[in-house]
């Protein structure tokens, strides 16, 4: 109990938990989402305290920023559809049917049981037990990059990361499949002040995103954080109506979605041979290949996240109205 920062940790942890409770219990959904965004940012801060700046960046940019934008957009859509857009009243968008008491008790028992299991497992586990530390340190020189997290993501466990990019691809395909047509809901637009702000900041955001990507090789940052920051550019373009998706853009968009997956998987296959297996980059080219993959994956992530925010395949509305 010597470290005064512990007090800060305690307060921060308490705030995180309190915000989690608040965001689920507050009546107004808009307030709930704002509380959730605050919660996400404070979680990211806690992860900085735990020496995980990469994770904190990813959580702040993707887990909180993009997710928050998605939630707000959906809330707006729901309010528009249910005709409560102009009213400030608390929105209950779902017709709530009463839940039978036995189900509630069963759920409560289930939650209690799981939480008990969690507590037992956490308190019974060794503090700072064994890990991959030594293995990673040993393998770092052959990885082609200087930053351990990037080495793990793009080299040691590149297979996981490829599949993560595939998940993103699956998401955008599913979203396009679910919703189509040009939205008849008025897109959330920025006010004049914000629009000016958007025009001013766009170049700066591009620079920051690219820098994050480039830095990923030796310092915290990388494809996912950079991609998310660049996706913010897409969000601002969509919000400020500087860019409006058109049906004719779909072809290019499809290629942009698959670019990351294709390049990642393609490189993984092409390096195999001469005694090497898939994903085994030749050490002398490792850095180049990793930067190439990261660059292309970043573009894909940025476009995909922006498309997930836009949320529907831009096709001319014709058959859609009648079919529903």
């Amino acid at each position: 109990m010597t470290d005064p920062v512990i007090i800060f940790d305690l307060l921060l942890a308490a705030a995180v938990v309190a915000l989690a409770v608040a965001s689920l219990s507050v009546r107004d959904l808009f307030v709930a989402i704002v509380l959730f965004i605050t919660f996400g940012l404070l979680s990211a801060l806690s992860w900085v305290r735990l020496a995980a700046p990469d994770v904190a960046l990813a959580e702040a940019a993707i887990g909180t920023g993009v997710t928050g934008a998605l939630l707000l957009k959906t809330l707006r859509h729901l309010r528009y559809v249910s005709g409560t857009l102009d009213r400030a009243e608390a929105l209950s968008v779902t017709p709530a049917a009463p839940v039978p008491a036995p189900v509630i008790w069963a759920n409560a028992a289930f939650c209690g049981l799981v939480t008990l299991g969690l507590a037992v497992a956490f308190l019974g586990a060794p503090r700072s037990g064994p890990g991959f530390d030594a293995l990673v340190a040993e393998a770092m020189p052959a990885s082609g990059v200087d930053h351990p997290v990037t080495a793990v993501l793009l080299n040691f466990r590149a297979y996981d990361t490829l599949m993560e990019v595939v998940v993103l691809l699956a998401a955008v395909i599913a979203v396009w499949q679910i919703e189509r047509g040009l939205s008849d809901a008025p897109a959330p637009v920025l006010g004049a002040v914000w629009e000016g702000f958007a025009r001013l900041t766009l170049p700066a955001i591009v620079v920051v995103g690219t820098y994050l990507l480039w830095k990923g090789a030796e310092a915290p940052g990388g494809a996912f954080q950079g991609g998310a920051v660049l996706a913010a550019v897409g969000l601002l373009l969509l919000l400020s109506r500087l860019y409006v998706p058109q049906p004719s853009h779909r072809g290019v968009a499809r290629w942009a979605f698959v670019l990351g997956t294709g390049a990642f998987a393609g490189v993984a296959l092409l390096v195999a041979g001469g005694g090497r297996v898939a994903f085994e980059y030749p050490p002398e080219h490792a850095k180049t290949l990793i930067l190439l993959i990261e660059g292309l994956v970043t573009i894909s992530i940025a476009v995909t996240l922006a498309a997930l925010f836009h949320g529907r395949e831009p096709v001319a509305l014709r058959s859609d109205r009648g079919r529903a």
């Binding site: 293995l135 393998a139 466990r157 297979y159 085994e280 980059y281």
Partner: peptide, 13 residues
């Protein structure tokens, strides 16, 4: 068995 990337488990996959 095939060790992807030439990295042996547990670090690799």
């Amino acid at each position: 068995t095939l060790e992807l990337g030439g990295w042996a488990p547990p670090m690799g996959i």
